[in-house]
């Protein structure tokens, strides 16, 4: 652990770096000489590697940023959840994000959160954008294979998915690197399985660098593994949270713990994914589930409308009262 004063210093440096990044996004650079000197004075091992990388080199030269694309590259997409957006500035594109479940049974929730992030990215990239899901064979066996109709219901286009099944972590990383470099994919989900020594900081940094250079966004989904070192810009630990559905399961709600954030504070929030709006939001106060125990709530929505010649819900007829068997 770092001493508290060095933690403070790093926090200060992060702020400076974030300032520089923002300036770079606007195309103007105001290199704060104090900050630069401050950074130069810190022993290297005291600075998080992220802090070194985040400082744009051109800022140190004090000149204008040469890369005209810099602004477009670093755009961030709003999550739709005000507090999360305030803390993170949105989901950063052209970067690597790290999503892991809080415990083994939360792997579906972690998958859901990663897919929701992919959904945000794909919505921004356009409906026709391809997306890639590279996963270890074992992950598919343990947590289930991607299911087309389910992905469609979640708001993603399964016909635009390229799914790669790799035998081991080395192949997962190889395919992921190709995918990030390919410039064909709006989002790249990388799902290795288990605690593998090959998924070390170096491998992670390679992915980050490729994502950075190729304008692709990677989401590292660590199903069923102990979260290892990461160089991702954000790291999320996701656990499941009860939904707001009343007596039937509602829209997915995640208890998201932002354990690492290169651009701002960390924190923990409840986030609800709205499949119809393709956006997160803060879950509303949960209506109490009446009665004890899960009594059969009949099907809602589309599935109940079995007849082909009628709309799934009568227009303007008010609430549909479910038929109760008891």
């Amino acid at each position: 652990m770092l001493a508290s004063e060095s933690t403070d210093r790093i926090a200060m440096l992060r702020r400076q770096v974030a300032q520089l990044e923002r300036a770079r996004g606007r195309g103007e650079v105001r290199a704060d000489p104090e900050a630069v000197e401050e950074l130069a004075g810190v022993p290297v091992h005291d600075i998080a590697p992220a802090a070194i990388r985040a400082a744009p080199t051109s800022a140190f030269r004090g000149g204008r940023v040469a890369n005209a694309w810099a602004g477009a590259e670093t755009t961030a997409l709003p999550f739709g959840h005000p507090e999360v957006d305030a803390a993170t500035g949105g989901l950063k594109r052209g970067a690597l994000h790290d999503v892991s479940p809080a415990g083994a049974p939360d792997m579906a929730s972690a998958t859901g959160f990663a897919l929701a992030c992919a959904g945000l990215l794909l919505r921004a990239a356009g409906r026709d954008s391809l997306w890639l899901w590279v996963r270890a064979e074992m992950a598919g066996r343990e947590a289930g294979e991607p299911y087309g109709p389910g992905l469609a219901a979640f708001g993603l286009d399964p016909s635009r998915l390229v799914a790669v099944t790799a035998g081991d972590t080395a192949d997962v990383l190889r395919a992921a690197e190709e995918g990030l470099a390919a410039r064909a994919f709006g989002a790249v989900l990388i799902e290795p399985f288990g605690d593998d020594r090959r998924l070390d900081l170096t491998a992670c940094r390679r992915l980050s660098l490729i994502a950075d250079g190729g304008r692709a966004t990677g989401i590292l989904l660590r199903t069923g593994g102990i979260p290892g070192p990461t160089s991702a810009v954000t790291r999320w630990r996701i656990s499941a949270a009860p939904s707001n559905g009343g007596r039937q399961p509602g829209n997915p709600v995640f208890a998201a713990d932002l354990a690492r954030n290169r651009f701002g504070p960390v924190g923990a929030w409840m986030m609800e994914w709205r499949t119809d709006e393709q956006s997160f939001r803060a879950p509303r106060a949960r209506p109490k589930a009446e009665g004890a125990g899960p009594l059969a709530v009949p099907l809602s929505g589309r599935l109940a409308a079995a007849s082909g010649d009628r709309p799934s819900r009568p227009p303007g007829s008010g609430a549909v009262v479910p038929f109760r068997s008891r």
Binding site: G112, F154, G155, D157, P252, R274, T275, R302
Partner: peptide
Amino acid sequence: EEASFPATDVLAGDPPERPIRLFA
């Protein structure tokens, strides 16, 4: 060959009816 999935008419506010991951 490219073939799209049939569009699902998601009703506003309705949760997904099918799971994202399916066991073989």
